[in-house]
Design a protein around this nucleic acid. Sequence first.
DNA 1: TATGAATGAGGGTTCATTCAT
DNA 2: TATGAATGAACCCTCATTCAT
Lengths: 211, 211, 211, 211
Amino acid sequence: MSESAQSRPTSRRERLKREREERILEAAATVFARKGFHQATIRDIAELADVADGTIYNYFDSKFGLLIGIMARIAELERLPGELVQALQGDARESFVTAFQERMGRIERGQEMLQAVLPEVLVNPDLRVQFYQQYVLRISTLLEQYLRAQIELGHIKPVNVPLTVRMVQSMLVGLIVLRILGDDPLRSEWADVPEVLATLVFDGLKPSGME
Amino acid sequence: MSESAQSRPTSRRERLKREREERILEAAATVFARKGFHQATIRDIAELADVADGTIYNYFDSKFGLLIGIMARIAELERLPGELVQALQGDARESFVTAFQERMGRIERGQEMLQAVLPEVLVNPDLRVQFYQQYVLRISTLLEQYLRAQIELGHIKPVNVPLTVRMVQSMLVGLIVLRILGDDPLRSEWADVPEVLATLVFDGLKPSGME
Amino acid sequence: MSESAQSRPTSRRERLKREREERILEAAATVFARKGFHQATIRDIAELADVADGTIYNYFDSKFGLLIGIMARIAELERLPGELVQALQGDARESFVTAFQERMGRIERGQEMLQAVLPEVLVNPDLRVQFYQQYVLRISTLLEQYLRAQIELGHIKPVNVPLTVRMVQSMLVGLIVLRILGDDPLRSEWADVPEVLATLVFDGLKPSGME
Amino acid sequence: MSESAQSRPTSRRERLKREREERILEAAATVFARKGFHQATIRDIAELADVADGTIYNYFDSKFGLLIGIMARIAELERLPGELVQALQGDARESFVTAFQERMGRIERGQEMLQAVLPEVLVNPDLRVQFYQQYVLRISTLLEQYLRAQIELGHIKPVNVPLTVRMVQSMLVGLIVLRILGDDPLRSEWADVPEVLATLVFDGLKPSGME
DNA sequence: TATGAATGAGGGTTCATTCAT
DNA sequence: TATGAATGAACCCTCATTCAT
């Protein structure tokens, strides 16, 4: 009852709960990434998170709920729009590189979660829609606006905007997939990807003087 | 029943067997694509193929064997190397477009099988290796050789060859994924993809006179 | 293929299936009666029926389905209406005794199934309605008609018909419950119950000359 | 906190404890009656009693202990013997009606607790014995004595005493069951039951002049 | 003493695979 | 060879109970 007995009794518990939830989610991501959603058992996750099976259900509704939780974490880490807009100010090519660097970093950090979620996204219609909207459509819209503006300004030549944007998105998604597949160059030279990607997308492969 | 009753008893039987195996494999691809490998049941497949559950095991070792079977069918449809080499003769840009058209067609036709196989490929280490080698590495090697040659010839400017090739591969893989995710432009404007892709990769987005 | 190879191939299988279903249902009734629906495990039932756990699900939808199955068997054994009507022809008291004898026999034979089902009937609203209608209401309606007719004829004195019928039904239901509770006299002197019951209901306890 | 601060610190606490125990027991009876013992969860009961899950275990040993507690409460409310003896003095028929009225009232008031306990009583051997002795045997013995005495006195005609008593008990138990089953006449005309019951048991259905 | 999160045993159910017919 | 019923291992989830705060 006395206020001095415990300084913010809830805050300590709260913190412990948050940490535990975090631990469970991370364990889930790791196990899902390693064995796939369906091969992964709740037991696996519980053991890795060092909790009892039942404890997981104090934090998540179901095994599927863990997947949703991971998706939410990914979305949280994204907050793309603002930053992307930011990154795309100024010189077109330069901002491309910056934006891609950002992106590559996120992909690298989120690789495990993406690997955990992506196979199931390809399979589950609900996840599919959610992932597509959060991860693809949101960026598509932005990129399309940006591309149109740049074309207007003459910084970029006229192209089929929606398809071109899809190509770029495809590359990003494809890079994730190829990394998951264990492609070696993509792992060892990951840092160089943004520059190569910008060159490809922006300048093309055609030699400079060859107009 | 007597051996003389039919001119070539085995060959007819053989054909029936082939057809049945084919039917089962197609059913498997359809069901896997629709529900995912783990949600799909042998019963589902048996019903769609109009055979009994047990019959499937006369043709395939296991449920997983069906997946392997589908992978094999994809590989069979590929026979890339030769054709790719063929396609890449002559003018660089032109052969790019031709090659991509080829590829887009294959992707479209093989979509169901790819959708059936891809999620599990991302999850199963063995499949991963097999898919990576058959579907990525084989082409990577070819493209790398080609790219180097073109650079040598001055038709293409000097770039980081392995990464550049990965970018192109990523795009192809990413296109598959985005189609699976149900992206609308990619479905409705699929025919235009090769040209846009070639423009992007070959010419870049930079306006012509802007060197 | 030859017709003489197996005489009615289906009928043998059919028979085996019937027998197996029967065995499972009996096992379920026994186990439910012994341990109660919720304490009973599918394993228990499977072992008693000498089948594998999964086999049960080839015959019944769920554990609850077994209960429904037992209820259906009880209803099947009943076919009350016709027989009751039959029994109640002729002298009132005599037909009472006959009808009750019939009933007591059925209760005795169906004891295990009733014991399996009754506790859950008291607890599950759906079962409650079904049991009430099949086991109580159907008979109530008949008895009410009969009673009214007998009153009309002056064979029975005017009484509150619905409630009186409920009393009789209560007694029947109560007898089942008391038997389940293990009451000794009801087990050892079961054969005398109909006569005593008829005396009680028909003549009352008042001494003969005491009007 | 100091012992002198409150005149009778324990007695107040005692009262609070009693009230809480009472609240828990009532909540348990309600939930058990509503969902059945096995479907009911400690959480359900805790919520209805407005206490934490763990608190319940400060008052009762286990979930089963709650059932025992309810049984004890029923027995407490009974105190039959004395009152029954009292009620059965004087005119036979009149005392029957009085006794039954008493009983009906108790059944009505105790309905929830009976509904909570009865299904499990039918299933659990220990409860079965306890319930049988407290609720059936105790009264049986009394009624048998009474019946024998009345027969001796010529107020009641000679009958099979144990079985006759069982019939009456069956009716009482059966009335409870039929009420649980939701029988409408028994609910709406409950007040008339004692009279009808007495008529049936005492006078029988035979018309007055029909000896 | 009250709390409510952690625990983990337990069980219904699914379904790939086998095998007698 | 085709059938489809039988098998039983495997797993998600529930929830009574415990116990640190």
